[in-house]
Every structure is written in C-alpha cells, then in structure tokens.
C-alpha cells in the first residue's frame, strides 16, 4: 500500500472514533437537557453520569484528528484553511460554549438549568455544522479564482443535499446516543431510563437509515463520480445495512431474565454498522480529499516524518491502552459508580 493511503486510513480511523465518541457525547448532553427538568430526571442522571468523566477524553480525540490531519497532510493546510475557516471557526465557538457551560452547570446550581439548556442545544448544532463540510469535499461547491479556492456559500446554503447531510448528522447523533444510553442505563440497573432510551432508539434507527439513503440521491451533479465509487463499494454499504438490521433486532429480543433488549449486542452491531459505512464511504472518496482540487497524495508529508509519527503512535498507544482499560472499569463497568444515587 502507498504510504499516503496508510496515512489516510489512520486518519479516517481517528475520524470514525471521534464520530462515534462525539455522537455519544453531544447526544448525551442533549438527552440530559431534555430530561433535565422536573419530570423524568432518571434519564438525565444517567446521561450526566456518563458525560461527566468522559467529555475530556472525547475532546482529545477531536484534537487528535486535527493534529493527525495536518501532520500527515501538511500540504492540504492552505486549501482547507481558506475553505473552511468560517464554518470551523463558528464550530469552535459553539464547542467552547458547550464545553464550558456544561462544566459550569454543575458548579452553579442556581443557573444550572439555563446553562444545561444552552450547552444541550449548542451540542446539537455542532455535529450539524461539521457534517455540512462533507458535501463540499465531494465537489460542486468550490470555484477556483486564480490560485485561491472559494466556497460558494450561497449555493451551499440553498442546496437540498446540505440539509439532508445535516439531518443525517443529527439523526446519527441522537440514535447512537440513545442506543448507548439504553445500554448504560441497563448496566446501571435503571429500568425507567432504559425504557426511555430504548423507545428513542427504536424510532430513530429506521429514520437514520432512510435519511442516509435519501442523502445519497440528493448529491449535486458534480458529485456523480462519488456515486459511481459508492456502487463499486456496495459490499461495505451492504454489510453496514445487515449489521444495522441485526443491531435493531437485538433491541426486541429478550434477555435471560425476560426483559426486552439485548443492548450490549445492539450497541456493538451498530458501532460495526457505522464502521463499515464509514470505511466504505472513505474508500469511495479516494483518491480525493477535496474533489477535484486535492488528492491524498498531493497533501502528503515526507516518508521520514511519516515513519517517525508511526513510531510515536505505537509507543503512545502502548502506554495508553492500560490507562483506558482502568478508565473503562471505573466508569463504565464499576457497579459502585453505575449504581450510585
């Protein structure tokens, strides 16, 4: 395999991890807000119990993605910088509001609810904003003026495909987080919260799939190259669909004690579903980072840097895996944490 392809595969893996963690994180914030009022606070409690120790770790994966992007593909910087500075800048502002207000809401109980609402809503907007970058990379929204690329904001804001991408991002966020929180609540032995999140996962799942398919049909004509590649990768997308069906069915099966929902299986299948879909999407996207102006190869760094980075990742991961296992035990498995009141 070419070095630049290895690099983009690693990068894509980081994106996959962040997409999953970010969906859980922002989604949990949103559900925490929805159920944060008086009536159904069990569900909110569960969401916050998950969120409190994990948001920092999730945020690091965002930074990891950005740093890896520019370390592996330094020559992509100028085009990405000029094109996306506005949406990403706005995203950063929202992210800052969401992070700080979420943490503040635990310290200032009197304004806690207000802060929680603001952070819940901004948390919903961030994935939407980030997902709207995807259609741009597929072509049709950029014109080159001499050497500088320009983003056609007017066209982007009036295109149907932008909004179906956004809708897809939102549904994914809510579906994944509802499903995961159902499992988390189940592990905590909280029946009401489990039922609440199971209900949401059940209606959100099919909707997400339908929107994903619709989104493919809304692509602008300039992106037709991508559709051809999608057909060539139909194996990956097909696997993804099968895994979805399996995961969805698991929500209706009974466990040994007769309760509906094999949540752990459902979560694993759905994470794999997204894995297959994201890698299939990624390989359909190649060789372009931004069609047709930038290929992975043109953005790539030099081999000696690349191999040093690989070594750094190897060493870093060996150190961190034990820490992660410890972390997982303390917050996602330890009964004393899960079942506290």
């Amino acid at each position: 395999m070419q070095e630049s392809i290895i690099a983009i595969t690693i990068l894509w893996t980081f994106l996959y991890i962040y997409a999953m963690l970010g969906s859980l994180d922002f989604g949990a914030g949103f559900w925490g807000m929805i159920y944060g009022g008086k009536d159904n606070s069990r569900a909110s409690l569960i969401a916050n119990r998950f969120l409190s120790p994990t948001w920092e770790v999730t945020n690091v994966f965002l930074v990891l993605f950005v740093v890896a992007l520019f370390s592996f593909f330094p020559f992509a910087a100028s085009m990405l910088g000029v094109l996306f500075i506005l949406p990403i800048g706005l995203g950063l502002i929202l992210l800052t509001i969401r992070t700080t207000f979420m943490v503040f809401s635990h310290s200032v109980k009197r304004f806690g609810r207000l802060l929680q609402i603001i952070s819940g809503i901004t948390g919903l907007l961030i994935p939407a904003l980030l997902v709207s970058i995807l259609p741009v990379t597929l072509g049709g929204f950029i014109i080159m003026e001499v050497d500088t690329p320009n983003l056609l904001y007017g066209k982007l804001l009036t295109s149907f495909t932008t909004y179906s991408h956004i809708l897809f991002g939102l549904c994914t966020e809510l579906f994944l987080s509802a499903l995961f929180l159902a499992d988390y609540a189940h592990a905590s032995g909280d029946k009401t919260a489990t039922a609440t999140y199971r209900k949401h996962a059940i209606w959100l799942g099919p909707i997400t799939i339908v929107i994903a398919v619709i989104t493919l049909f809304t692509l602008v004509p300039e992106a037709s190259w991508f559709l051809d590649n999608v057909k060539a990768n139909s194996y990956g997308f097909g696997m993804s669909f099968i895994l979805f069906v399996l995961g969805y069915l698991a929500l209706f099966l009974k466990d040994s004690s007769g309760n509906r929902g094999l949540f752990r299986y459902a979560v694993v299948f759905v994470i794999l579903q997204y894995g297959f879909a994201i890698y299939a999407y990624g390989s359909a996207h190649l060789p372009y980072m931004i069609y047709p102006h930038l290929t992975a190869n043109a953005g790539f760094t030099n081999p000696s840097m690349f191999y040093s980075l690989l070594v750094a990742y190897g060493v870093g991961l060996t150190i961190l895996v034990p820490a992660f296992i410890f972390f997982w035990r303390l917050f996602l498995k330890d009964e004393r944490y899960l079942k506290q009141d």
Binding site: L69, F70, S71, L80, G81, V82, G89, N302, M305, L309
Partner: peptide, 17 residues
Amino acid sequence: SLLWPGFMEIVGQVISL
C-alpha cells in the same frame, strides 16, 4: 492550522512529533 497554512506546511514536514 487554519490561520497559518504556510507555517503548517513546514510543521507537518519537520516538527509534527
């Protein structure tokens, strides 16, 4: 990364470690 693309080009080749 967004504001200093000329800088990032060199960073990515030399000092990303």
